[in-house]
Amino acid sequence: MLRTVNRVALGLAGVVLLAVGGAALAAGAGLSVPSWWPWYGPGDVPLSTADRDRWRSESWWWPVVIAALAVLVLLALWLLLAQLRRARLADVVVDTGSDGDIARVRGRALEQAMEAEAESLDGVARARIALRRRGGEPEARVRLKLEPHASPAGTLRALTAEAVEHARASTGLATLPTTTRLHASRHAPTRVA
C-alpha cells in the first residue's frame, strides 16, 4: 500500500508543480495564454491586492487556510515517517548453536519459501506472506485465497502445522506470531442450460 500511496502522492505533486510552473513560465515569458489562464503577463501576480483584501475580510478564510495547511503538514509528516519505517524484515538471524556462529536468512527468501509451502496446501489458490519486525521479533502476516472447496479451519490448522512451523523451526525462533487473513475465491456465474 505504501508504494501505491507514494506513487499517487508523487504523481499529484508533479502534476500540480508542472501546471503552476508552466503557467508562471508562460506568463513570465510574455507568451500568448488563454483568457481563462490566471496570469497574463510578466507583471501579473497570483493574487492581486484586491483579491487578498477581499479574502482577508471574510471570517472563514483564515481558519480554512490554517486547517488546510495543517492537514498538508500532517500528511507530509506521515509520508516521511512511513518512508523511514522499514516495511519488511530484511533478514532473520539464525543461531547455529556451535561456537556462537550465526547465519542470516534473507527475509524475502523465507517469505517465498513459506508462500510456496502454503500454496501447496489443499484448498489454497494463492498465498502472500510478509515478514515484519514487531518488538524485535519477526512476525508473519499471511493472506490466503481459498478455493471454493477449502475448509477455512482445516486450512488454517495445516498452515500453522506446516508452513509456519517449518519456518519457525528452520530459523530457530522460539515463536513466530502469525496473523492470517482468509479470502474466498470468486467464480464467475455460469449459465446452466
Score class of each variant (00 low, 15 high):
residue 77 L to E: 06
residue 148 P to S: 01
residue 120 S to A: 15
residue 78 W to E: 12
residue 49 T to S: 05
residue 64 V to S: 13
residue 12 L to N: 12
residue 117 E to L: 07
residue 110 L to A: 02
residue 124 V to K: 03
residue 43 G to L: 03
residue 72 L to T: 15
residue 84 L to R: 10
residue 82 A to V: 12
residue 92 V to S: 04
residue 42 P to K: 00
residue 36 W to Q: 07
residue 82 A to C: 02
residue 114 M to Y: 04
residue 141 R to E: 14
residue 49 T to P: 05
residue 64 V to N: 09
residue 117 E to G: 07
residue 140 A to D: 10
residue 136 G to L: 03
residue 148 P to C: 02
residue 136 G to C: 08
residue 87 A to I: 05
residue 46 P to L: 00
residue 116 A to S: 15
residue 107 G to Y: 04
residue 72 L to R: 12
residue 15 V to A: 08
residue 141 R to K: 06
residue 50 A to H: 09
residue 54 R to Y: 14
residue 89 L to Q: 05
residue 126 R to N: 06
residue 51 D to W: 10
residue 89 L to V: 05
residue 92 V to K: 03
residue 70 A to R: 02
residue 88 R to C: 06
residue 92 V to A: 09
residue 68 A to R: 06
residue 69 L to V: 07
residue 75 L to P: 10
residue 62 W to E: 12
residue 57 S to N: 06
residue 65 V to H: 01
residue 80 L to D: 13
residue 78 W to R: 10
residue 65 V to G: 00
residue 119 E to D: 11
residue 92 V to L: 09
residue 86 R to S: 09
residue 124 V to M: 04
residue 111 E to A: 02
residue 81 L to E: 07
residue 15 V to C: 03
residue 138 P to V: 00
residue 46 P to W: 12
residue 142 V to Q: 04
residue 41 G to K: 01
residue 14 G to I: 01
residue 20 V to N: 02
residue 143 R to E: 08
residue 19 A to L: 15
residue 114 M to Q: 07
residue 142 V to G: 09
residue 113 A to G: 11
residue 105 V to A: 08
residue 139 E to S: 07
residue 65 V to S: 04
residue 118 A to F: 09
residue 113 A to D: 12
residue 141 R to T: 12
residue 77 L to T: 01
residue 89 L to F: 06
residue 18 L to D: 06
residue 98 S to T: 15
residue 78 W to L: 14
residue 120 S to N: 14
residue 25 L to P: 06
residue 86 R to H: 11
residue 121 L to G: 05
residue 83 Q to N: 10
residue 72 L to N: 14
residue 34 P to V: 02
residue 109 A to C: 08
residue 30 G to E: 08
residue 39 W to D: 02
residue 40 Y to C: 11
residue 126 R to Q: 09
residue 117 E to W: 04
residue 94 V to P: 10
residue 123 G to W: 13
residue 11 G to E: 12
residue 84 L to S: 08
residue 59 S to E: 03
residue 128 R to P: 05
residue 122 D to E: 13
residue 140 A to I: 03
